[in-house]
Amino acid sequence: MKKVTMLDVANHAGVSKSTVSQYLNKRYDYMAVETKSKIEEAIDELQYQPNIIARSLKVKSTKTIGVIVANILHEFSTQIIRAIEDVCHELGFHIIVCNADENPVKEEKYINMLYAKQVDGIIIFPTGENIDLYKQLQSSKFPIVFMDRLVPEINIASILLDNENASAVAVEEFITNGYSRIGIVTTSAFKNVTPRLERISGYKKAMQKYDLSMVSDYIRSVESDSIQLELKKMLSLPEPPQAILAGNDLALIEILKFVKKAKLSIPGDISVIGIDDVSFADLYNPPLTTIKQPTFEMGKMAAELLLNKIDGADNVLPKNIYRFRPKLIRRSSC
Results as ranks from 00 to 15, higher is better:
residue 89 H to N: 14
residue 71 N to A: 06
residue 95 I to Q: 04
residue 68 I to M: 05
residue 77 S to P: 00
residue 105 V to G: 00
residue 93 F to H: 03
residue 95 I to V: 14
residue 99 N to T: 12
residue 71 N to C: 05
residue 80 I to P: 11
residue 98 C to S: 13
residue 91 L to Q: 15
residue 70 A to E: 00
residue 67 V to W: 02
residue 102 E to L: 03
residue 100 A to M: 08
residue 99 N to L: 10
residue 88 C to P: 06
residue 78 T to E: 04
residue 104 P to E: 08
residue 89 H to C: 12
residue 78 T to A: 09
residue 90 E to D: 10
residue 69 V to R: 01
residue 94 H to P: 03
residue 82 R to K: 15
residue 93 F to M: 06
residue 77 S to I: 08
residue 83 A to I: 09
residue 75 E to M: 09
residue 69 V to Q: 01
residue 73 L to Y: 14
residue 97 V to K: 10
residue 99 N to Q: 08
residue 77 S to D: 09
residue 74 H to Y: 14
residue 75 E to Y: 07
residue 73 L to E: 12
residue 82 R to N: 12
residue 90 E to R: 08
residue 87 V to I: 11
residue 96 I to D: 01
residue 86 D to Y: 03
residue 105 V to P: 00
residue 70 A to F: 04
residue 83 A to F: 05
residue 85 E to W: 03
residue 82 R to T: 10
residue 96 I to N: 00
residue 68 I to L: 11
residue 102 E to C: 03
residue 70 A to W: 03
residue 102 E to R: 02
residue 83 A to T: 07
residue 69 V to P: 08
residue 84 I to V: 15
residue 87 V to G: 07
residue 68 I to G: 11
residue 102 E to M: 05
residue 74 H to I: 09
residue 73 L to W: 05
residue 101 D to Y: 06
residue 79 Q to K: 15
residue 85 E to Q: 12
residue 95 I to W: 03
residue 72 I to L: 15
residue 101 D to S: 14
residue 104 P to S: 11
residue 101 D to G: 02
residue 75 E to T: 13
residue 78 T to R: 04
residue 94 H to R: 13
residue 99 N to D: 13
residue 75 E to C: 12
residue 91 L to K: 15
residue 79 Q to N: 15
residue 87 V to F: 00
